[in-house]
Each structure stands twice: as structure tokens, then as C-alpha cells.
């Protein structure tokens, strides 16, 4: 019995040590990625944050100028920022996952660094950047109107994390399948760049769509993510046909499949790229 417990304890310790090592590696890679971006960009460390922020603000300004009042229930800036930030976050993580293994090839010189670590590191840095952008816009808006409205911060946090998971899952799945069938990579890039932009609720609210047309867009889990984020800011914001369960299911399924595909093809990813 004692031997069994000792063996079990050793096994648990090994798993915990392995996880701690992976966390250290992912954090180190994310820091390295951040330094590299800061060194290569024109504005240093701040440029890493302000370059995507400037891009988003331009998009938001154009949209707000075209149509000042988007929905009655929320400030149009926050309403649009929720959509644009989540779309950019998703696109960047998923597209980087598609090309990340080839770009991170140099790092695999160090045996401890696996392709998944580089993908997780780039997802981490994108998540940090986009979360900072969202918080910055939210704080600015709160100061401007001198009121803070965030009805369900827990839901907002869960929604954000699940969206990151979804992006990683879809990116990794497409990467591995795309390695076997290259057209999948091209189609995924096309889908991420075009179809998602028009079906993710960036420029419309689901409740404004007529009931029969909703299924045309509600298949898209990113729409659920965007709408749930808006709902978490103002609980009065209606979200018909939108559910966190659907988003969670899509995220877990894509992550699960992605990881299964990845672990059964890791050697192929390393040798081919």
C-alpha cells in the first residue's frame, strides 16, 4: 500500500513538474515574442499595444462616423469595440496558429520547446494585448461619461477565455489538417478573413435580425462570444438564440480535436516545416 502511494505520489509530482515546466516555457516564449515585437516595431514596447489599438480605433471611428447611434442599449464605441476586439483576437490567434509552426521552427532547436508551446505563447500575448485594449477602451469610456457599467464581469472573463480557447482549437485543428490537406489552410484563412467579418455581429446585433434569418449567422460561435460580451456589460442587452453553452461546446470540441490531431501529428509538423 505504501509503495503504491509512493508510486502515485511520484507520478503526480512528475505531472505537476511537467505542467510547471510547460507554463515556464510558454511564459518565456511569450516574453521573448513581446521583446521581439517591441524591438522590431517603430514605437518600442508601447508600439506593441498601440499599433493594433490604432488600427481598431480607425475602424471604430469610420464606423461611428458612418452611423453614430448603433444600438440604444449601449454606447456605440463599447458596442463596436466588443465586436472588433473579439474578432481581431480570434483572427490573430487562429491565423498565427496556422503559420506559427513554420515561423517558430528556429525555436525547436531547443528540445524542450514544442510547436504547441509556441502556439500557446502567441495566443497568450494576443490575449494579453486584446484584453488590455478592451480594458483601455472601457476605462476611457467610463471616464468620459463618468459612469461604470459592467454588469457581469465574471461572464465577460469566461467569455474572453473561452474565445481564446476556441481560437487555439480551430487554429491547431486547421494547422494539422492543413498539413495533410493544404487547401484546408487556404480555406480557413479565407473563412477567418472574410466570412467571420460579416457573420460575427461586428456591425449588427442579433436581436435586430428577423427570427427566420438568425440561423444564418448563429452557427458562428464567434457571434455568440461577441454578443455574450455585450450582454455581460449590460444585462438588459437582449441575446436571442445566443448561448454560452454553444460557445463552450464549440471551444471544448475544437480544443479537444485540435489537441488529438496535434499530438498524433507532432513529429510530422516538426519534420515537414
Amino acid at each position: 500500500m505504501v509503495n503504491l502511494l509512493t508510486a502515485f505520489g511520484r507520478r503526480v509530482a512528475r505531472i505537476v513538474n511537467g505542467l510547471a515546466l510547460q507554463v515556464r516555457i510558454v511564459l518565456a516564449l511569450a516574453d521573448r515574442d513581446f521583446f521581439m515585437r517591441a524591438e522590431k516595431g517603430s514605437f518600442g514596447v508601447w508600439g506593441v499595444l498601440f499599433e493594433p489599438l490604432a488600427l481598431m480605433l480607425t475602424l471604430l471611428a469610420l464606423r461611428i462616423l458612418v452611423r453614430m447611434k448603433t444600438v440604444d442599449l449601449m454606447n456605440p464605441l463599447i458596442w463596436l469595440a466588443c465586436g472588433v476586439t473579439m474578432l481581431f483576437l480570434f483572427k490573430k490567434i487562429a491565423i498565427k496558429a496556422l503559420t506559427g509552426v513554420a515561423r517558430g521552427q528556429k525555436m525547436f532547436f531547443y528540445r524542450r520547446i514544442r510547436p504547441l508551446d509556441t502556439l500557446l505563447a502567441s495566443a497568450l500575448i494576443e490575449a494579453r494585448l486584446h484584453a488590455s485594449i478592451l480594458v483601455l477602451i472601457f476605462i476611457s469610456e467610463s471616464f468620459w461619461f463618468w459612469r461604470i457599467q459592467l454588469d457581469d464581469p465574471g461572464l465577460a472573463l469566461i467569455d474572453f477565455i473561452v474565445t481564446v480557447m476556441l481560437a487555439i482549437g480551430i487554429g491547431v485543428s486547421a494547422l494539422v489538417i492543413g498539413h495533410r490537406i493544404p487547401i484546408v489552410k487556404t480555406l480557413t484563412k479565407f473563412g477567418l478573413n472574410r466570412i467571420l467579418l460579416w457573420t460575427s455581429g461586428i456591425f449588427f446585433a442579433t436581436y435586430t435580425l428577423p427570427g427566420p434569418t438568425r440561423p444564418l449567422v448563429t452557427w458562428n460561435p464567434l457571434l455568440h462570444s461577441v454578443e455574450i460580451l455585450r450582454h455581460s456589460i449590460n444585462n438588459a442587452y437582449p441575446i436571442p438564440d445566443i448561448s454560452l453553452d454553444y460557445l463552450l461546446t464549440c471551444a471544448f470540441l475544437s480544443c479537444g480535436f485540435g489537441l488529438i490531431f496535434y499530438f498524433s501529428n507532432e513529429a510530422l509538423l516538426l519534420s515537414d516545416d
Binding site: 515556464r24 516555457i25 511564459l27 518565456a28 516564449l29 516574453d31 521573448r32 521583446f35 521581439m36 524591438e39 522590431k40 531547443y110 524542450r112 520547446i113
Partner: peptide, 17 residues
Amino acid sequence: EGVMTGRQNAKFLQAVY
């Protein structure tokens, strides 16, 4: 990486190994 300092590179490798 050449664009990183010796300390940054050392810190990175220290985290990995």
C-alpha cells in the same frame, strides 16, 4: 536572437532549461 540583449536571451534560456 540578435535583437535581444544578452540578459534577455539568458533569461529566456534560464526559463526553458
